[in-house]
Nucleic acid binder design. Sequence first.
DNA 1: ACGGCTCCTTGAACATCGTTCAACGGTATT
DNA 2: AATACCGTTGAACGATGTTCAAGGAGCCGT
Lengths: 232, 232
Amino acid sequence: MWLRPERPPRDRRLTRERIVDVAVAVLDAEGHGGLSMRRVATELGVTAGSLYWYVRTKDDLLELALDRVLAEVSADPGAPGWRPALAALARSNRAMLLRHRWALSELTLRPNLGPNALALAETGLRLLERAGFAGADLDAAMAAVNDHVVGAVIAEVAWHGTLERMGESGAGWGERAAGYLREVAARHPALARRMAATGEIDVERESERRFEFGLDCLLDGLAARRLAPPPP
Amino acid sequence: MWLRPERPPRDRRLTRERIVDVAVAVLDAEGHGGLSMRRVATELGVTAGSLYWYVRTKDDLLELALDRVLAEVSADPGAPGWRPALAALARSNRAMLLRHRWALSELTLRPNLGPNALALAETGLRLLERAGFAGADLDAAMAAVNDHVVGAVIAEVAWHGTLERMGESGAGWGERAAGYLREVAARHPALARRMAATGEIDVERESERRFEFGLDCLLDGLAARRLAPPPP
DNA sequence: ACGGCTCCTTGAACATCGTTCAACGGTATT
DNA sequence: AATACCGTTGAACGATGTTCAAGGAGCCGT
C-alpha cells in the first residue's frame, strides 16, 4: 500500500486525503459495519466506482484510515523522566483507540506499516533507549507497553459493548437473564463474590483504574530490568 | 444469546453443537473471511436457511464458536505457587489464541459471557485470591494478565500476517519496497537501529520471548502489590 | 389407521456488499 | 483543431446475510 504513490492529477474532484477524511468520519460515526464504498462515495457526491481510481481495495482504504488516526497519538515532550514519558505515550495511545473504537478491530488483523505507525514506533523506541534499554530487551519492553494498551482497550470496548447490548434488549431482559446469572453465581463462587462486590460501576472509570494499575505493574517490572540509569 | 436454550427436538439432522463444530473447523481452516452461512450449510449437507432454526444470526454463531474454543484454555492444577500457576494459565490462553487466530478478531468486538468464558474467569480469580489479592486489585490484576495475553497475541498475529502478505506479493517486492524502507530508516534512526540489529528472525520465537518478558515484568509488579503472602 | 399438529427443511427471493469494466465527457498536450 | 489521456459514470456480476411461504416428515390423539 505504502509503495503506491498518489497520481499527479489534473482536475480530480477527489483526493486520497478527502476519501480517507470521509472514511474516518463514517467509521467514527457508525462503526466498522457502517463503512461501505457506496456510503463514502455518496458522502463525496460521487459513485462507488470512482473510489477505485484512488484506492485499490476497501482494505487499502481501511489501512489508510488506520494510519490516519495513528497520527493522533503523540508523546508529551515535557515529561520529566522516562517513566512518566512512557506512561504519557501509553495514555495517549489508549485515548486515541478509545476515540476511534473501530481502529482496534483493524489493528487486530491488519499489518500497519504506515508512516504514522512507524513514527510512533520511533518515538517509543527513543524513549526507551534514553531510559536505558538496549538490544532485544528494548523491543520486548516496547512491545509489552503496547500490548497492555491494546489489551486494555479491547477489554474496555468489549465490556462497554456488552452493556450496550443489554440496554437494547428491551425491558424484560433482567428477568430472562436472572436464571442464567443465578446458575453462574452458584457454579462460580469467586466470580459471584466479585460481581456482588462491584455493584453499579462506571465502566470508564473502572477501566481507567485497571489500565493504570497494570501500567504501573509493568513499569515497575521494566524499571527493574533497565540496564543503566538514564544518562544525565 | 446464552438465554436461548436449544429446542428439545425430534428428528433433527442438525444440532447447535454440530453447527458450531463445522463453524470452528471452517474458521480454523480458512480464517474469519472464510466463514459464511452457506459454507457451513453445505458442509453439513443442508441449505443455508436451515441454520437459522438453530441460530438467530451469524453473530450468534460466532459467539458460540468463540466460547467453544475458550473451553480449550485451562489451568495447570499441579503448579507449585501462585506465580507459576498464573503464568501457566496465561500461556494456555495464549496458546489457544494462537491455535484459533480468528478468535482474536471476535474477542475484539464481541462481548463474551459464554459459560466457558465465565469458567475461565472463575479459575483466574480463584488463583489470584489464593495469591493474596482482594477487592478492586483482584479485578485489576486479572485484567492486567489477560490484557497482556490478548495484546501480545494481537501483535504476533499482525506481524505474522505482514510477513505473509510480503511473501504473496511476488518476487519484485523487495525492490519496490527498498525506497520506502530507505526513507523510513533515514527519518527514524532508532527504528533503523533495531531493524538492522535483528536481521532474519523467527517471528514465533521472538514473539514468545517478548511475551515471557512482559509477563515477567507484570508478575513482578503484581507480586509487589500482593496484600498478604499466600495462606499456608 | 387415520387426521391433525408441530417440527424441521427447502428453495426462492431481497437487499446490500465489493469489485470490474466498457463507455464517455472533459482537459491538457501537440 | 486534433489527439491522447484522465477521471467519472452506470450498469453489471457474484457473493453475502437474512426472510418467508411452502411442503414434507415424524408424533399424537382418537
